[in-house]
Design a protein around this nucleic acid. Sequence first.
RNA 1: GGCGGUGUAGCUCAGUCGGUUAGAGCACAGGCUUCAUAAGCCUGGGGUCGGCGGUUCAAGUCCGCCCGCCGCUACCA
Length: 680
Amino acid sequence: MSAQRILVTAALPYANGHLHIGHMVEFIQTDIWCRFQRLLGHNCIFVHADDTHGTATMIRARQEGRPEVEILADMQAAHMADLADFQVEQVHYGSTNSEANRALCHEFWAAFREQGLVAERDVEQLFDPEAGMFLADRFVKGTCPRCGEPDQYGDHCEQCNATYSPSELVNPYSTLTGAKPELRTSKHLFVQIHQLQDFLTEWVDANDHLQDEVANYLKGFFLGEPLKEWDISRPAPYFGFEIPDAPGQFWYVWFDAPIGYVSSTKEWCDKTGEDFDTWWRSPDTRIVHVIGKDIIYFHCLFWPAMLKTAGFRLPERVQIHGMLTVDGAKMSKSRGTFVLARTYLEHLDPAYLRYFYASKLTNTLDDFDLGLEEFVNKINSDLVGKVVNLASRTAKFVKGVGLSAAYPDDGGLFEAAATEGDAIRDAYEGFEYAQAMRRIMALADRANEYVEAEAPWALKKDPEKAEALQDVCTVALNLFRQLVIYLAPVLPRLAAQVGELLGAPIERWDESRTPLVGTPVAKFKHLMQRVDPEKVKAMIEDSREAQAASETAAPTAAADDGAALAAEPIADECTYDDFMKIDLRVARVAKAEHVDGAKKLLKLTLSLGGDETRTVFAGIKSAYQPEQLEGRLVVCVANLAPRKMKFGVSEGMVVAAGPGGQDVFLLSPDSGAVPGQRVH
RNA sequence: GGCGGUGUAGCUCAGUCGGUUAGAGCACAGGCUUCAUAAGCCUGGGGUCGGCGGUUCAAGUCCGCCCGCCGCUACCA
């Protein structure tokens, strides 16, 4: 097999936040594949960068009162440290906010212009006069024009499910400053992507670029009708690159983000003397993008269209994975399952997560779950109980004498496992890591059975059988080494340790085909610790606590910087009498239950003391579990007119603060208050 | 709401072209072993393959309908 040139990328993480264990699914998956290819002897590089541009970075810079580039530098340093500590190896870590990227953006753009793909149109959009910027839908809130529900986002009412344009909102306000937005017109540039429709249809259809389900999805959902033009410009102010032939216009972040793959490679080439065209314009280079299913559209339609237009090599494959859930649910800050990469590393060995992910990853878009109990069990029984234990139970018997000079008869075990290596190799190649891990563990079972049957500890007692003992351990340690070679892409540190233990570094996949003989065996040291469930618990606890500290990442919630106030300005003055119209009461949550069919609501039965109760539907499902609520005291509006809702009549409101979603904070009276007391 | 995915043992999942009595790991129970980090080996219990209908000599597998669960929902579609 001749060495191939392979360029691999993972989606560029956004510079606005820290990496979490969901990101790590992709980076670990990509790193495993690259290490596997290098183990086969291929010239495989993983190039990476931060995605930096866009409104979110700009707003964060304003909030923190420092320039964007400072934030970018901090975040990049943090991202690089996290990845390095997870043993993710990248040849270069670039940034989309680099001169190399700007130059390449110009190159792509010139190609678009030359080929007549750019059109110009006026777009009406809401503008925040105080912030001096146009507002994306999610930065505008107001009263729903259909049902009158206040505080709905610019495009969609969560109360009645109406969709509308932001300009239709009643009493709109900017969530950035609270100012009333004005409707303004600005020029936008559009890419006429439908001109590439035939090319894209063919590309999507061609074998092996995409998983079947993705190709079907794209063909059925987008390519069946003319593709809509792509709004590629944003008016100033915008943190990004100004479009050279359209002053005051900036490229939308999704234009320059994937170009970061190319520009990062360029920087790496300039640094190392590699030839850039060989990597991005040669048909001999395999280019593979690993992404999550949330960004299929950009990577499987726009990106190939961009590469094609600008004359670059198209990806051989866009490998798409599902999303991570933790303990059966979306990662949640209030449950403590929103675990930052750094928080994980403070408590647990990265090897655990690398193996766990590998044992779960398939070549499908299915989401997969990190069950915390399963995590502990799997690592302890697979890695410690089966694999590492093989060395642990045999290595010390041959300390001093080393491995036998000739490989003994093992009943064909080694040969069978070498053959099985082909299937394991194919599984890695096809991103079927779960299958690879299953096969490896089955081999580990065979090896442990062998040790059990040969009972080296019994041979040890009879000095006459010293040779047999050495032979049995030679077999066991070779079977062990074979497993570690197969696991090397996943567990690089283990591979290095085993190289030292057996006096021969693990460098090539093919080494799994030849038994090691006659080498000394070093003193056995523990290769991997069992997972302590207490540490997992501590990690979850820390993640729950980190919630408050990490809030600065969300544009609507910073500590005392006034962002929350700005998001929702103080209402018009009211009189004491106005206030007294609202009868706030202390209430006890007598019952809290899920509502069938409701995404956001919990049904609460509130006791106001005596026989007085209220049934209230509260939109707090994403922040609270019913069990957490039962018995606790809350404050409710007791004289609110009943309101008919989809699931029943709500007879009041519980008082809570926060922007919504997972960030809802119920108010509670201090201890001593009893249900029925009025709040004055 | 829209779109996509998914449903097989208590849990996580495999199950090829439709073909014998539906499998594995973990968990659980009993036994063995005592070299090994409470590791290992053997045995066992445990399934109406989400439901209903259809095609077929034969359905976990193919088709239709229904139900449940999960994800995505971006000035981007």
